[in-house]
Design a binder for these strands. Structure first.
Lengths: 198, 198
DNA sequence: GTTAGCATGTAAGGAGTTACATGATTTT
DNA sequence: AAAATCATGTAACTCCTTACATGCTAAC
């Protein structure tokens, strides 16, 4: 029961590097504008993270971009995923999945769905939906206590929250149905997708 | 420009103690189940927070509940807001307001709207709406780039996100309109509400 | 008499931020 | 030559969590 640590940043970096080798500055831009629907990370966390991942052998660094695409500028350090890192990413994507329904992690996981199999996707979607159901029940219980005149704002907040949760559940229902349909039309165990164009 | 620190917990505790004196255990329950739409704080952060607030004179502690309501159990330590603490809360509620449109803080601020004047409420609501507008523009810009076949999930996430943001903006528009109507029907400078039943 | 719930705390650590320091290159 | 942008990094700090330690009372 050793509380699995989340490390959203690590997951996001692994996911982006899976698609293409990148240097730190570019990585940060993509974190902000691609996974940026969720949050922006600072260099103060990104660079130490890369350093640690390097130490663990999940990424390798090569100074400067290779031959072509000569940009000039300060010498970049390009990071790329190693085989170990690839395995690690796959592990995070599958093992951690069920616990990963909290707002932040769900977004990142979802954005990386293209790298996973349908089974993993369904696990994550179900996990998220279950949590939202719990949350909705909780909100409704609170809404059941009619608000005092001074509690108007709290009440209104719960109401809006409950509505949002309902809508997200509905959205998830649709996604789950689609995944199941896809899984049926392409039966058998889900093959891990082949690597991206490197 | 000294980056105002947020300290959600402090604000939430001040807000709850404004309504009634409470001991730590009860405070935590209310944090979870009353402001709990947002997050649950652990004792490991709550008690040190109370200690610090005590040191700063924002709260005072009295051992055991007064005379009545003898519960037995372990001796409780009841905290209540001091005058300084009251001023501090008022300061946080007004000064910090504009910067406080990030998801977590907005919820807590909103839940404490009952303690503020209409001017503060409008500032916070407007701040929140402005941020959401920015975010929506950002999301739409990304949606404008038609997704590659592999980016389906990212695209779908943006789409759902944009819809949620739109709905919240609409919600805020309604609230803002209501506040303005209220302000007109009761003109003049907003009087700070009288204290709660102590 | 042991488990469950109430109640208060501390120590260590995790995941990130801000502010700072540095330096190259391109644009104005 | 100044300013903006690209690029990498470190030190100190923040706010919170987990895991632990303690003890009291009520219920089984």
């Amino acid at each position: 029961m050793s509380a699995r640590r989340t490390r959203v940043l690590e997951l996001a970096v692994l996911g982006l590097l899976y698609e293409a080798p990148l240097h730190g500055y570019e990585l940060r831009k993509r974190l902000t504008f691609q996974l940026g629907a969720f949050r922006a990370f600072s260099y103060g966390s990104l660079y130490p993270c890369l350093k640690e991942m390097l130490r663990q052998g999940h990424v390798s660094q090569t100074p400067q971009a290779e031959g072509s695409a000569r940009g000039g500028r300060r010498s970049r350090i390009v990071y790329r995923l190693t085989d170990t890192g690839h395995e690690h990413l796959h592990g995070l994507l599958t093992e951690v999945a069920p616990a990963t329904s909290d707002d932040e992690c769900f977004g990142v996981h979802f954005a990386l769905f293209g790298h996973t199999g349908p089974d993993v996707r369904l696990r994550i979607l179900h996990g998220r939906r279950d949590r939202l159901h719990t949350r909705l029940a909780d909100l409704r219980a609170r809404l059941a206590h009619a608000p005092g005149p001074a509690d108007d704002y709290t009440f209104e907040l719960y109401r809006h929250d409950a509505e949002s949760v309902e809508r997200e559940i509905h959205w998830l229902d649709g996604l789950i149905a689609r995944e199941q349909r896809d899984a049926r039309s392409r039966p058998g165990p889900a093959p891990p997708r082949p690597g991206p164009p490197v």
